[in-house]
Amino acid sequence: MVNLEVNIGSLKLKNPVLTASGTFGYGTEFADLVDLNRLGGFVVKGTTLNHREGNDYPRMAETPMGMLNAVGLQNKGVDYFIEHIYPEIKNIDSKIIVNVSGASVSDYVAVAEKLAPLENIEAIEVNISCPNVKQGGMAFGTTCAGAAEVTRAIRNAYPKTMIVKLSPNVTDITEIARAVEAEGADSVSLINTLLGMAVDVERQKPVLSTVTGGLSGPAVKPVAVRMVWQVSRAVKIPVIGLGGIASGADAMEFILAGASAIQVGTANFFNPRITMEIIDYMEDYCHRHNVKNIYELTGALKL
């Protein structure tokens, strides 16, 4: 019997497979296709203090083995989440992690404080890396001082597991990771999307309404694996790896490179059952490699 359990701070996951924020809605959208109870957990959509309409259409452009998005954190706000969505999902037998975003430090803190009392939300993922909003988001995640400031403020207000989601759009991601670790983050997840752009050559206009957007999908995977490897060697807290995972083998690349858990994002869009396939693959992989506990494989890369 293979043990797929992993710990992220005090958060115990039945397996390392999570879904990435913004790619799995609130879980219920996939309920016909996926056994939500089998997931290690799912990270629900970026949640802000107030309702956000997001950016104008078009918000998406498909690119070779990837896509650009500029959704811009469309969501109905944290109060709506607590009143209307949380009751619908709280009994799913899987860890629910809420992705938290804000335009100011006080916004982040206010959202975290509202989520803290929810019994079945044991963790938040702090998004300091959204490239698609004018205020906040990536602005905090691209400097050590900004990342540290948000992390410190939320740490003082939120006692449960705090994961900080890092932006790859920086010169040295390990510096940012160290900065949030020093301020008490329990874990870091990486990578958020890479800032990108696409042009409609006939219309001579940008494809996205926002001109630039976030690149995700298999195209970004090698960059993500490299950053997970670098960050996992730079910090002691567990690393959650994501970026272009579209198969079980992809997921194991991240684990071997140093991730304790992984998130599946864009692949949910083209293979809604991908998470189930990855869990099956991990079990089989551990059997084939005579590994009892999958956590033994974190960072087991042979150099």
Binding site: G25, D56, Y57, P58, R59, N268
Partner: peptide, 27 residues
């Protein structure tokens, strides 16, 4: 027929502006 990704109302890419705000065309 707005451009879609997931088709399930999860990715919020295919939104249309309506009297209720941005809603997913797919769902």
């Amino acid at each position: 027929e707005n451009m879609m990704a997931c088709g399930l109302g999860a990715c919020l890419c295919c939104v249309e502006k309506t009297v209720k705000g941005n809603v997913c065309v797919c769902s």
